[in-house]
């Protein structure tokens, strides 16, 4: 026993905390995406790694430049900028020139996050803002897909990666249409097993359905993900697609194809569930997910693009404040509307 009283700290209750912190939640997403990143390396070779690193570097650098010096360490320590870079990288075609990817990452963090006031302030998913910018600015480069090279071509780097800024890239690799492109323009399907494993052409991180779902299950187990959003997307997209498919099986893709092709899984599990840009309320999450699911089928089937995941999410991001406002839960002991 001590003779003198200790210096007592005064804190306001509650004195206990559940333990998980925001940077840890971000780190969980990294862990969940690790298999997806490894698959990208396996299918698209060393070039995939370069693209991802450039995106992460561009994102972190932008965050560092635009954050006041005194809060830089904290802003970078929360892992969110690097995560935005990684997510952007996973949505890019494997042979995209590196300088474009770098520019996209700068736009993602700069226009997607920093100008909104940093983490937690942005309305739109930053990675998708970056991708929308790239698709609008470099439509050809963003829709030229290299076929997966497999482990044999691991060290082959496509020359287009190193195209100088504002020069037309030269594509040397075998370019091939994505499953969605084949479906849209040639009414040609792709086997489900191929879609699940991922040896199709497409964006770096979107091809392997199984690994994407695996990471999603991990995030769900860690309670980092609102399961209602992906489930809402799958249900709405699957149902809408099923209705169309039963009308005309030759013209419209099957629900399985809809769910496992393109960026639907990557978007549904890792982008739409970004807590900052999705609704807070449980009912809101259902509406948000269902909206994305309907829009993506609408754009893919009736729109001008073979893929619609990015625009669906961005559109529903814009609706999030409104959804939150009208889906406030009923307060205990009150009727809906607060009476």
């Amino acid at each position: 026993m001590r003779s003198k009283d200790p210096q007592l700290l005064l804190q306001s209750a509650p004195m206990l905390r559940q333990g998980l912190t925001t940077p840890q939640a971000m780190r969980d997403v990294w862990y969940a995406l690790t298999p997806v990143v490894l698959a990208a390396l396996w299918f698209f070779g060393l070039g995939a790694l370069l693209l991802l690193l450039v995106c992460i570097g561009g994102a972190v650098l932008t965050e560092w430049v635009f954050t006041p010096p005194e809060s830089r360490r904290d802003a970078l320590a929360d892992n969110s900028a690097a995560l935005t870079g990684l997510l952007l990288g996973l949505t890019l075609p494997p042979a995209l020139p590196l300088w474009m990817a770098f520019l996209g990452a700068m736009v993602a963090v700069g226009l997607g996050k920093v100008i909104w006031g940093g983490l937690g302030g942005n309305l739109f998913n930053p990675a998708l803002v970056g991708r929308a910018f790239l698709l609008g600015t470099f439509p050809i480069a963003m829709t030229t897909w290299a076929a997966p090279s497999g482990p044999g071509g691991f060290l082959d780097l496509p020359a287009s990666l190193f195209a100088l800024p504002f020069h037309s890239p030269v594509y040397d690799a075998v370019s091939s249409a994505t499953p969605l492109g084949l479906m849209k323009f040639q009414q040609q399907g792709t086997g489900l097993s191929q879609l699940l494993i991922g040896n199709t052409s497409g964006s770096l991180g979107e091809t392997s359905g199984l690994l994407l779902i695996l990471g999603g299950v991990y995030l769900w187990l860690r309670r980092d993900l609102d399961w209602r959003i992906p489930v809402g997307i799958f249900a709405a997209a699957g149902l809408f697609s099923l209705i169309l498919f039963t009308q005309d099986g030759a013209r419209f893709p099957s629900p399985f194809f809809t769910l496992f092709s393109g960026g639907l899984l990557l978007g549904a599990i890792y982008m739409a569930t970004d807590p900052v840009t999705s609704p807070l309320t449980p009912r809101g999450a259902w509406i948000f997910g269902a909206g994305i699911g309907l829009l993506v089928v609408l754009i893919r089937v009736f729109g001008g693009f073979p893929e619609g995941m990015m625009y669906s999410i961005l559109l529903m991001n814009a609706a999030t404040p409104l959804i939150d406002r009208y889906t406030q839960p009923r307060v205990f002991g009150r009727k809906r509307g607060g009476r």
């Binding site: 905390r17 912190t21 940077p23 904290d74 940093g118 983490l119 609102d226 807070l280 205990f332 002991g333």
Partner: peptide, 29 residues
């Protein structure tokens, strides 16, 4: 151990507080 507090980060709207509130309030808001 029990008195140490991590740094305060911005709200990322994770909705854990909504799921915690027994009164179904919106603590984040």
């Amino acid at each position: 151990h029990a008195t140490w507090r991590p740094k305060e980060y911005p709200c990322i709207r994770c909705s854990r507080c909504l799921e915690a509130c027994p009164y179904f309030l919106n603590p984040s808001r």
